[in-house]
């Protein structure tokens, strides 16, 4: 079920200078996530490039769609269950699963086992997958243990900690450690970097005004940091922050951590903020 990206498998990158573990490439299944697939495919490729440059052999299971989080957070357990069963099967033979999203990785790691409280067999499968699933920066920093990244960035960055990554998975130091490896980039922390941006999935639509007020606070903190770009690890928050910044007439760039680390920051016209 796991098809290799280049169709050739694991002969890749055995001697990659950026990787600490070059000998037996780790076989990683890329959980693209539905929002990356639709809204920002370049982030998927950036994640893929980063994993390959870390010496991994990357497969992208075909047919993957959505992890089921919208249903789960909206009280529709049955939808969430159906989609999680599908995802568990799709990634069954991937020893590692990596997502460029704290929220989707958090769904699999933290909530999949809870979905099957009355089904011991599926719960075990869910637990097994949860144990193999990682958020991208967590994987690069703590599993692949990279000591260099391909990207570069000239300017100041500020990092927004996205809620699920931070509180469900403990993603805090990992992206900062990786950003510190970027030549030219300076990290300037903003006030309230751990405060929610107001996205919250359907919350942003159901409680538009409250969500906007929260996003405004985030935009003000980003502006006050003086950074050239805000970097984060989740598409939903990214679209929320970017959409609100632009409505406020603020051109501060909004970049996914994978884009920055992979060197796909659109300086040649691929800017995330500029669309394409």
């Amino acid at each position: 079920m796991c098809a290799d990206v280049h169709g050739t498998g694991d002969a890749t990158l055995a001697a990659n200078p950026l990787s600490a573990q070059p000998i037996h490439p780790m076989r990683v299944g890329l959980l693209v996530t539905c929002l990356v697939d639709m809204m920002r495919p370049n982030i998927g490729f950036a994640a893929l490039d980063l994993l390959e440059s870390a010496g991994c052999s990357v497969v992208v299971p075909e047919g993957q769609t959505c992890c089921g989080q919208p249903g789960w957070n909206s009280g529709d357990r049955e939808s969430a269950k159906a989609l999680s069963e599908k995802l568990i099967a799709e990634f069954a033979d991937c020893p590692w699963v990596v997502a460029p999203s704290g929220s989707c990785a958090g769904m699999v790691r933290t909530h999949y086992p809870e979905l099957f409280r009355d089904d011991p067999l599926m719960r075990e499968k869910a637990r097994a997958l949860a144990g193999r699933t990682w958020e991208l920066t967590d994987f690069l920093a703590n599993v692949a243990k990279v000591h260099a990244v391909p990207g570069r960035f000239s300017g100041t960055l500020t990092y927004h900690d996205t809620c699920s990554g931070l509180r469900e998975l403990g993603v805090k130091a990992q992206p900062r450690r990786l950003l510190a490896m970027l030549p030219g980039a300076k990290l300037q922390e903003m006030t309230g970097c751990e405060t929610c941006c107001g996205f919250g999935g359907t919350f942003a639509v159901k409680f538009s005004e409250i969500s906007t007020l929260m996003a405004d606070q985030k935009c003000e903190n980003i502006a006050a940091s003086g950074a050239d770009a805000v970097v984060l690890g989740d598409l939903g928050c990214m679209l929320n922050i970017e959409g609100r910044l632009r409505k406020r007439g603020d051109a501060t760039r909004v970049l996914h951590i994978a884009e920055v680390l992979a060197g796909d920051t659109g300086d040649t016209g691929e800017a995330s903020g500029a669309g394409r």
Partner: peptide, 12 residues
């Protein structure tokens, strides 16, 4: 509210 940053135009 906010704008919606448009998708790239092709899926991953």
């Amino acid at each position: 509210g906010r704008f919606l940053p448009a998708p790239a135009g092709k899926t991953f």
